[in-house]
């Protein structure tokens, strides 16, 4: 087991390279979250559409994505389809992550939308608003408010999932840790260091989500 001073030395020495990797991890996570919300929203609306065919499409997507490991999905987008089409590594990873997130987010949003009182839709419609307008202005804002805690959770999962991009040679946090670890024959120290970075990022993310929740709670149910 490495000594504490050894750990601390390496931590400060490798600050530069880890911070660069952290930036990449954040980029991957951010893109996958934003795209994931868009994808999740689309499939949540499809599922709520009451049109059988659209509901089935949504079900199929969720089943496929939740039913296969994320690493398999990343590999398919990176290695698999390179016969047809060469996706740059950043996009292979972030699209796979976004699609993966999207399935879970669609379930979260679907539940949140359904939980909004039916009377809200009726009020909107009775004022002459179309269903789409009511959805956009009245229902979705309330649904998102409700969905924030489970969404925040999904964001944290997404942050950690970004570590799988290491397997397609992206220099995010986990890859840097294992590369430096094996180059220096000291895997343990570097793994502990990267764990600290992940903890920091999760704390940051949690803080941001909490602030958003507070801000939206002004209208207070």
């Amino acid at each position: 087991m490495p000594s504490f001073s050894h750990f601390f030395n390496i931590l400060t020495e490798t600050k530069g390279v880890f911070l660069k990797a952290m930036l990449l991890t954040l980029e991957l996570t951010a893109v996958s979250i934003i795209l994931g919300i868009v994808i999740g929203l689309i499939f949540a609306l499809l599922k709520n559409s009451k049109i059988k065919v659209l509901e089935l499409i949504s079900d199929a997507y969720v089943y496929l994505v939740r039913g296969t490991p994320l690493i398999v999905q990343i590999f398919i987008l990176y290695f698999g389809i390179s016969g047809i089409f060469l996706l740059p590594d950043f996009w292979a990873a972030s699209i796979a992550l976004a699609l993966h997130n999207g399935a879970y987010i669609s379930e979260i949003l679907r539940g949140a939308i359904q939980a909004v009182d039916k009377g809200q839709l009726e009020a909107g419609r009775s004022l002459g608003m179309t269903k789409a307008l009511t959805l956009r202005r009245i229902i979705l804002p309330q649904a998102f408010r409700r969905a924030l805690p489970p969404l925040g959770n999904q964001f944290i999962i997404s942050l950690k999932d970004s570590s799988l991009a290491a397997f397609i040679s992206m220099n995010e946090l986990f890859n840097v840790a294992t590369t430096l670890g094996s180059n220096n024959f000291d895997e343990m120290t570097y793994l502990l260091i990267v764990a600290v970075y992940y903890l920091l990022l999760v704390a940051l993310l949690t803080f941001i989500v909490n602030r958003i929740e507070l801000k939206l709670a002004v209208s207070d149910r």
Binding site: D117, G119, E122, Q142, R145, S219, R221
Partner: peptide
């Protein structure tokens, strides 16, 4: 409506 149905976020 009986239950008002005001928009709570506005």
């Amino acid at each position: 409506f009986q239950n008002f149905n005001l928009f709570p976020h506005k």
